[in-house]
């Protein structure tokens, strides 16, 4: 065992990874070589210092920046988002999308068929003939509503027409009245002029 060989085996010796024979040889060399003994002490102390090396703390702002640049920060989720939505999320995947759509269409149709009378619902109402009758009834209702609207529209139109006639009639009457009154006044003035004596007219002219 020499100093060069000792340096090669130093770490294994410190880690206890040498077999007994080699370990004994190294121990013997350390005991007899002051330089190697000093080196062993320095490296042992160094390892202790490195093991005790203060660590750098992870800044929380850095973690937040990383999250924002990638998936974003996990938001605080309420009951709906934390429990209800995840339960239904699998239904929105591609695999189950068609089945989910069909279920939705069926449910909406079923609710529509049931109408407001949930208590009167029975499975017989889902038979084809029952569904056709329901469809016919809905069509009649819609048509009746349309007829009612159309009648109302005609009535309103008629009322408006009468109103218009009435208004224009009233306007015509007032216009004629004004014209007649004006004409009457002009006629009366001419009559007064005709009844005035000639001497009075001459005097008026000289003045």
């Amino acid at each position: 065992m020499n100093c060069s060989r000792f340096e090669t085996l130093l770490s294994d010796y410190m880690d206890g990874m040498l077999d007994e024979r080699v370990k004994a040889a190294v121990s013997q060399h350390v005991g007899s070589c002051p330089k190697c003994e000093a080196l062993l002490k320095e490296v042992t102390h160094l390892r202790e210092q490195l093991a005790d090396f203060p660590e750098v703390a992870v800044p929380e702002a850095m973690v937040e920046r990383i999250l924002k640049q990638t998936t974003g920060l996990p938001k605080e989720q309420g009951f709906w988002q934390a429990l209800v939505l995840p339960a239904f999320r699998p239904l929105l995947t591609q695999r189950y999308a068609f089945a989910t759509l069909m279920m939705f269409v069926f449910l909406s149709f079923a609710v529509n068929v049931m109408g407001p009378g949930f208590s009167a619902f029975s499975y017989s109402r889902l038979s084809p003939s029952s569904l056709m009758n329901q469809a016919d009834r809905m069509t009649e209702q819609v048509y009746a509503k349309w007829r009612e609207f159309n009648d109302l529209k005609l009535r309103v139109g008629e009322e408006f027409r009468l109103f218009k006639e009435d208004m224009f009639g009233r306007l015509d009457y007032h216009l004629v009245t004004i014209l007649f009154r004006s004409y009457s006044e002009s006629i009366q003035e001419e009559q007064r002029d005709a009844e005035t004596p000639t001497s009075d007219k001459e005097n008026e002219n000289e003045q």
């Binding site: 992870v58 850095m62 973690v63 999250l67 998936t71 974003g72 996990p74």
Partner: peptide, 17 residues
């Protein structure tokens, strides 16, 4: 997102050091 955050917090200490 929570798994990713956990991932970051697990390894960020060693990486930054």
């Amino acid at each position: 997102a929570r798994a990713w955050e956990s991932f970051i917090r697990t390894y960020s200490g060693r990486l930054i050091n």
